[in-house]
Amino acid sequence: MTTVLDRPRRSAEPTPGSKARRRYGERASIAYLFLSPWAAGMVLLTLGPMVWLLYLSFTDYDLFTEPEWVGFDNYVRMLTVDPHFWNAVGATSKFVLISVPVQLVAALGVALLINRRSRAQGFYRSAFYAPSLLGASVSVALVWRVIFHDWIGQPDRALLALVLLAVWQFGAPMVIFLAGLQQIPQEYYDAAAVDGAGPWRSFLRITIPMLSPVIFFNLVLDTIRAFQVFTGAYVVSNGTGGPSDSTLFYTLYLYEKGFVEFKMGYASAMSWFLLVVIALITALLFRTARGWVFYSGDDS
């Protein structure tokens, strides 16, 4: 006689909640698997070297002997003793303050000119974008040095030659501006025209506000990129940063300290100082963006 205890127990069927959790776990595992190469690269090629450079910034290191701990000596010497450091800061600051606004204005102006449907639109885009692909090359910088040979020997014009080289490479922000312009509905301009608004008023009241997120995006990227300019300054000035340190950009001086004088500890301190400055300026840009950047659906 079979009792209740002798009957085989039915296996508990999974609930809908447990099935959902299992599917979520499987998808998360797949996501982590695909993200693992990026995570490994981030740790090994970015975070790891950054931490190592932070340690080296507190040492006296010449690439050939063991690092010797010196504390904050590199930072103190950099900020108080080294006159070329502040010359590099000044030259880089001038370059950023001049080149970034001029490049953005040039990029937006060209984007407005070619924001028309025509058979040659693709050609114009490619033609104006090409300098962005070639501008960072050594060959173009050599040609630029020959063209502006008379300017390079004058302290008050040498920096201007590098500014023009940077502005000439406006293709990347131009393409981004063009994409933003094509997202603005034509109905806005038609309504403004009915109300009697001219092209300039429509540009100020419609184009600039609607394009403000794109302007902010290009501003942040171009500012960071301008602080990191190296190839043009190195080739045009023949690696000297002259005349009178007028083109001694920060990255050029960092390279000189680290790989010419082999003061890698000092160069590491300079690199971390640059990182902090860029982070602070980027944070400031994000802070000020609240007052002039308008997104779709923003009540302000």
Rank of each mutant, 00 (worst) to 15 (best):
M1V: 13
L5V: 14
D6N: 14
D6R: 12
R10I: 11
P16R: 10
K19G: 07
R21A: 15
G25Y: 07
I30L: 15
L35E: 00
A39F: 13
A40L: 14
L44T: 13
L45P: 01
L45N: 09
T46R: 05
G48N: 08
P49N: 07
V51T: 10
W52G: 07
Y55D: 08
T59G: 04
T59N: 11
Y61Q: 08
F64W: 12
T65D: 14
P67G: 11
W69I: 12
V70T: 13
G71D: 04
G71C: 02
F72I: 14
F72D: 06
M78P: 00
L79H: 00
D82S: 08
P83M: 05
N87S: 15
V89A: 12
G90K: 14
G90L: 13
V100A: 07
V105C: 02
V105G: 06
A106Y: 03
A106L: 15
A107T: 05
L108D: 09
V110H: 06
L113V: 14
R125H: 01
R125V: 00
A127E: 02
A127D: 03
A127W: 12
Y129G: 05
A130R: 02
L134D: 05
A136D: 12
S139L: 15
V140F: 11
V140C: 03
V143H: 01
V143Y: 09
R145I: 01
I147Y: 04
I147T: 07
W151C: 05
R157V: 09
L159A: 02
L160A: 15
L160D: 07
A161W: 01
L162E: 01
L164S: 06
L164D: 00
V167L: 03
Q169E: 14
F170T: 06
G171E: 07
A172I: 11
P173Y: 12
F177S: 08
L178W: 05
A179Y: 06
G180T: 07
G180C: 08
L181R: 02
E187V: 11
D190P: 00
A192K: 10
A193N: 10
A197I: 03
P199W: 13
P199S: 10
I208P: 03
S212K: 01
L219H: 10
L219T: 14
D222L: 11
G232T: 05
Y234C: 01
G241A: 09
D245L: 03
Y250G: 03
Y253H: 12
L254F: 08
F262V: 07
G265K: 09
A269M: 07
A269P: 01
W272E: 01
I278W: 04
L280S: 07
L280Q: 00
T288Q: 08
G291S: 10
V293C: 09
Y295I: 08
